[in-house]
Design a protein around this nucleic acid. Sequence first.
DNA 1: CTACAACCTCTAGCGACTAGAGGTTCAAGC
DNA 2: GCTTGAACCTCTAGTCGCTAGAGGTTGTAG
Lengths: 137, 137
Amino acid sequence: MDVSIGELSRQTGVKVPTIRYYEQVGLLPAPVRTEGKQRRYGPGDIMRLNFIKHGRELGFEVNDIRELLALSAQPERPCENADRITRRHLTAVDQRIAQLAALQAELTRMLGSCSGGCVADCQILESLSTPTGEKVP
Amino acid sequence: MDVSIGELSRQTGVKVPTIRYYEQVGLLPAPVRTEGKQRRYGPGDIMRLNFIKHGRELGFEVNDIRELLALSAQPERPCENADRITRRHLTAVDQRIAQLAALQAELTRMLGSCSGGCVADCQILESLSTPTGEKVP
DNA sequence: CTACAACCTCTAGCGACTAGAGGTTCAAGC
DNA sequence: GCTTGAACCTCTAGTCGCTAGAGGTTGTAG
């Protein structure tokens, strides 16, 4: 029934030190221990860790995931908060994509304008010397 | 001719602590100092810092910028290395955009499928419980 | 000559892990 | 029952690119 941290790692694809880190920051509850102080996890922990993992894959911050976990523990309450968190995250993703697309365009332009000569004529290094872009946060 | 660190900050838009940080990590050379040990910068430093700033705006890592700076100091050499660094960076940007677009799609789908009921029925939290996505590095 | 903004160095913190040292425990084979 | 060694434990420190703060010194305007 109970599994070791290594087995939990295998079943979820989350690395052992990362699992311990999640416990440390309060995403995972402190599990029961053997007499020799080794961690033993049950099915609930596996589900919770899968939830966390998927949240991270979707780019949610640990704080968001903490909140989403708290929400899903209260099935009777309305889910508007989950919606709000997700919407906020999506907005951040949209903005990041727009920013990166701008970078992509400028980098492509720079590469296209470099004729492959010597450094003195290089348009790439020339471009870098003349600041015009936008901030990458 | 020589300016203080605050003036350099104003002229380039790079914050004072960031300028000191760039000196510490070797992007900027240690400048001359007044008798009272305050930094004084010349025109060359302003150009160099502009180069660094624009590189960062384009998302280059500090190590890449260090290399690009070294290259631009050797005008006689061919610029293939600058080309290579830029191409590699562009590839990373492309990949990041693709990843974020996938996240964008899934987040949008999740938001669309949430009917706004209570947590027990919430498709957002449901989606999070069933891992399928890809890793965000 | 005084006031005070701007400068100085040094240390620590952010987020989300990752790496390593140095020591202990579990489980399988004999 | 005993040995081996993989897996576990805690703790500290490092990653990246800054940013914030403490506590002290210098430059310059009035």
